[in-house]
């Protein structure tokens, strides 16, 4: 969990939740594989069919703007995506990703350096991103957020807390 290594899928600025997961599916699809099958459908139709476990999505400014729909985060998580790196995040998407145990990392320098298809390695504890162009740093998550990520999301985290 603290080390994530995968291939980069790179996109642009202001990628909104409607192109990440279309609104027309939000009240009918609930199973993880159904939701994953539509990930990035209106942005990159090749994504859902070829994404591999631990691949890394790289976005520009304001990634995930728009709707509060949690499937924008779950469709990526359930596709196997290991982390999302962006220049900046829309706030609800950021919360949703963390609460799904999907690391969302704001690191403009890494976004500028990473090329599509690059192999990228993220060390969450150290706060580093390594790609062919070099090594970049980000501020590691605060302990409370690291605990949510380590437990695999908010719900697992609350269940664990209730059992302790």
């Amino acid at each position: 969990m603290m080390l994530i290594k995968g291939k980069a899928w790179k996109y642009g600025d202001n990628v909104n939740t409607d192109v990440i997961f279309p609104g027309k599916y939000t009240y009918t699809l609930r199973e993880p594989e159904e939701i994953a099958a539509h990930a990035l459908e209106d942005l990159d139709p090749t994504f859902a069919g070829s994404v591999q476990p631990d691949d890394i999505v790289v976005g520009g400014r304001n990634w995930g703007c728009g709707s509060s729909r949690e499937q924008a985060a779950t469709c990526l998580k359930w596709s196997g995506v290991g982390a999302i790196i962006a220049t900046s995040f829309a706030r609800i998407f950021y919360r949703n990703a963390i609460n799904q145990g999907l690391p969302a990392i704001a690191c403009p320098e890494a976004v500028a350096a990473i090329q599509p298809g690059d192999t990228v390695m993220i060390d969450l504890a150290a706060g580093t991103i390594e790609c062919p162009a070099g090594m970049y740093t980000f501020e590691p998550f605060p302990p409370s957020v690291q605990a949510i990520l380590a437990d695999g999301g908010l719900i697992s985290h609350l269940k664990r807390a209730a059992n302790e």
């Binding site: 509060s68 949690e70 985060a73 609800i92 919360r95 949703n96 609460n99 799904q100 999301g153 908010l154 719900i155 609350l158």
Partner: peptide, 8 residues
């Protein structure tokens, strides 16, 4: 907020 947060 998100759905999981509402559940929480």
């Amino acid at each position: 907020i998100g759905r999981s947060e509402v559940a929480a």
